[in-house]
Simulated scan of single mutants.
Amino acid sequence: MHGYFGTSIRDIMQSCGMELSLARYHFGSKDALFQQAIGRRAAVISRQVIESLEAELAPLQGKRPDVEAIVTALSAPAFAHLKSGDPGWRNYLRLLTQIGCLLERPDLTAPFYDQYAPAAARYRDAFAKALPRVTRETVELVQHFVESVFHLVLNELYAQEARSGAKALATAHIERMRTYLIRFAVGGIEAMVSSASAQRGS
Rank of each mutant, 00 (worst) to 15 (best):
R24T: 07
A121L: 14
A110I: 05
C16E: 12
R94E: 11
G17D: 07
V153R: 01
N155T: 13
E137F: 12
G28T: 05
C16K: 13
G88I: 10
A110V: 06
K129R: 15
T97E: 02
G88L: 13
Y25V: 12
E147S: 14
H26I: 06
R124G: 11
P111R: 10
A126P: 00
P118H: 09
A78P: 00
F145N: 01
V134I: 09
G100D: 06
S75Y: 04
A37E: 04
A119Y: 00
R24V: 10
E68F: 09
D125H: 09
L74W: 05
G100H: 10
K129I: 08
Q115M: 09
F34D: 00
R40Y: 10
T97L: 12
R124I: 07
E54S: 13
T97K: 04
E68W: 06
A119D: 00
P59Y: 11
S148V: 03
A23R: 03
R105E: 08
V139A: 06
A80I: 02
A76D: 07
Y92L: 13
A110F: 11
E56S: 12
C101S: 15
R163W: 12
L93K: 00
T135N: 11
V49G: 02
G28R: 08
L53Y: 00
S29I: 08
Q115N: 07
T138W: 03
E54R: 13
I70F: 06
L74R: 04
L20F: 10
R64V: 14
P118I: 12
Q48E: 15
D114M: 15
P65V: 10
C101I: 07
V146Q: 01
Q115C: 10
H81P: 00
R133L: 14
A121F: 03
G85T: 03
F34P: 00
I70M: 08
F112C: 08
V71G: 02
L82D: 01
Y92H: 12
E156I: 06
L33T: 04
M18P: 01
C101H: 07
V146D: 01
G100Y: 05
G100Q: 08
L33E: 01
R136W: 06
L53A: 03
K30V: 07
H81E: 12
L33S: 08
P77R: 10
D86L: 12
L157S: 00
I70R: 03
H26N: 14
T72C: 14
R47C: 08
P111Y: 11
D107E: 10
L82K: 01
G39C: 07
A58F: 09
L141H: 03
Y116T: 05
Y113N: 09
C101R: 09
R105V: 11
L22C: 11
L82T: 00
A23W: 01
L96A: 14
Y113L: 11
A119N: 02
P65D: 11
A55P: 00
A159F: 11
A162W: 03
Q35V: 03
P59F: 15
P118W: 12
N155Q: 15
R122T: 09
R41G: 04
A76V: 07
V146E: 01
S21P: 02
L60F: 04
D86K: 09
D114G: 14
G39M: 08
Y116I: 05
L53G: 02
D86S: 14
K63P: 02
D31W: 07
F150N: 01
V153M: 07
L131G: 01
